[in-house]
Design a protein around this nucleic acid. Sequence first.
DNA 1: ACCTTATCGTTGACTTTTCCACCTTGCCGA
DNA 2: TCGGCAAGGTGGAAAAGTCAACGATAAGGT
Lengths: 164, 164
Amino acid sequence: MLSEEKDDAEAVARIEAAFPLSFMIHQLQIKLGAQARALIAQHGDLTLPQWRIIRVIGMDAADGSTAIRKVLGFDKSQFSKTVTQLQARGLVEVLDHPVDRRQFRLALTGEGRAALDRLTPVLSARNEYLMQALSPEERALIRPALQKLSIAAETTDIPTGTDT
Amino acid sequence: MLSEEKDDAEAVARIEAAFPLSFMIHQLQIKLGAQARALIAQHGDLTLPQWRIIRVIGMDAADGSTAIRKVLGFDKSQFSKTVTQLQARGLVEVLDHPVDRRQFRLALTGEGRAALDRLTPVLSARNEYLMQALSPEERALIRPALQKLSIAAETTDIPTGTDT
DNA sequence: ACCTTATCGTTGACTTTTCCACCTTGCCGA
DNA sequence: TCGGCAAGGTGGAAAAGTCAACGATAAGGT
């Protein structure tokens, strides 16, 4: 009799139906993080934040520290520490910023790019797998939806129930 | 001249366009977590994980430890430690589980329910605020989408690019 | 009934993340 | 041009989260 186990699953479903959105996202993030860590660990020895930074630098869409830090949403301190680690491991090069002397530019070293090339296929396949779990409409809507939420999540003072 | 600042913002937008989904969710979760911490801190002295557990118990949809732990996605260890804190602070009561002797049941004490009632309006208003940032279709689709992703995120071995 | 396997919660060591104070650099109005 | 304020990065302390090992209970197959 697996009624107990089933009861737990039913209880989970019952709760999830009325779950705050932020809880759902948190729960999802926990699972995604664990999945990513497992994949990264199987194919190298980067940490998850290290991988994220390398991945963004490798997109060649920006090299300023602030831009990279902000897309990732990283805390200043964590970003600083992770970049130091990457630099110490010779995966990333830290260069002067041409305009803003507070910032710096980031570039991959040969070794850094090698790590990126080794990991990219694996993580891309995962991303594909995740996207395939969604219906076409969901695929189309989820990115803008997440972006809107991301902006809304930056508000510090919430309009108190003056809505209707 | 705010060209520098603007350049950063443009770079961020450029990167985000081609961002892996998992990165977007991670970035969103960071912001949501910070927002929730700020709100909770303003209205009491709970930690975020403590609040989450209290909130779920207060839904009265389940009281078994496993069900509560799994909807939140919490690590066993973290869950155990946070429940101990809540019990020590007298916010939560730990009772025997009627069927499974490995688990326990959780219930709010009077003080626990008071904390819940104090915080709920604030956090509910935030949830409303977040939902209002979405279009009606997005609102309708986001929950099932996140649930599908959550299931997909549990897969440990990803089908390697054999798709086409 | 029995044996094997899986799940549960707890613990301790460890890593990661957050928070805060600090100093430097850029921004903008007086 | 100066003076205040915002934004950038660093470093240390505290909190949160992760991981592996353990003993106890359940579940499932034989």
